[in-house]
Computed example of a mutant assay.
Amino acid sequence: MKVALFDFDGTLYPYETFNVLIDHLKHHPRYKTNYGRFVRKFAPIYFAYKMKIVKKSKMQNKAMEYYLLSFKNNTRSEIESFFKEVASDMIDDLRAPLVGKMRQLKQDNYYIMLISGAFIPLLEAVFEGFDIDCIVGSEIKYKGDKLDYRSRFERVYADRKIDIIRQHFADKQIDWKNSEAYSDSHTDLKMLELVGRPVAVKPDDRLKAIAARNQWQIHTD
């Protein structure tokens, strides 16, 4: 079996998802009060990051965690409806050539995995109707009908992606040499190295240098 691994932020979607989420929360007529709760909680971590006391990865993890916590008083249906609203504004900005490539690979019997740090309900809403075999993202946990704010939040990022990929395909025979992977960031380097056909999509400087050195395909808009 051949697989095709796709990142989302900066790859299938050309912008930073979290910035879009923040903008929606800030201006939403119903949930803009959530934005205030998010800012009050997140501000100390952000300032610590700007002062180089906190690493970027920790700051990003906390940003997503505190974003979810701003919905502490909302129901599951309200949260999922909000993400669907955001998704509806993102769909038209997907990179059409990559979406076409994904569909072609599916027709060619590749197993398609979308693996991203974005929230799962957002990813599922963006790709509703797409024939994707597996969507992996950062999980939102609930207790009954409300957010389980006491559970540990885990962002799917960097090496965690590799762990998930290996676990998912552990009992399957994978033709890694003829498999493909798509990402824009050097943080996905291990994922790209896992396959025989890595593609750097509008890569950051570090990944661009690695891709050029290894003669990987580089996709530019």
Rank of each mutant, 00 (worst) to 15 (best):
H168F: 06
K146G: 09
P14F: 15
M51E: 13
R213L: 10
D205L: 10
L192V: 06
N19S: 12
Y66L: 00
R76N: 02
E80P: 04
Y142A: 02
R37H: 09
D131T: 11
S151T: 04
Y182S: 06
V99Q: 08
G196N: 12
F130W: 14
F42A: 01
L122K: 01
Y66N: 12
E139S: 11
F8L: 14
L21S: 03
L189I: 12
A63P: 06
F169R: 11
P97W: 10
R150V: 06
F8Q: 09
Q60M: 14
R152Q: 14
E124R: 06
R30Y: 08
F82D: 06
D92R: 12
D131I: 08
T220F: 08
A43R: 04
K50R: 03
Q104C: 05
E16A: 13
K41P: 00
A96M: 14
P97E: 10
C134D: 13
R160Y: 15
H219A: 14
F8S: 09
P44V: 05
V54L: 15
I164Q: 04
K141D: 13
D92I: 07
L123I: 08
F127I: 03
L114Q: 04
V3D: 10
E85G: 06
R155D: 13
R197P: 00
R206K: 15
V99M: 00
H28Q: 06
I115S: 07
S116M: 01
L105M: 14
A200C: 03
Y67A: 00
M90P: 07
Y46D: 05
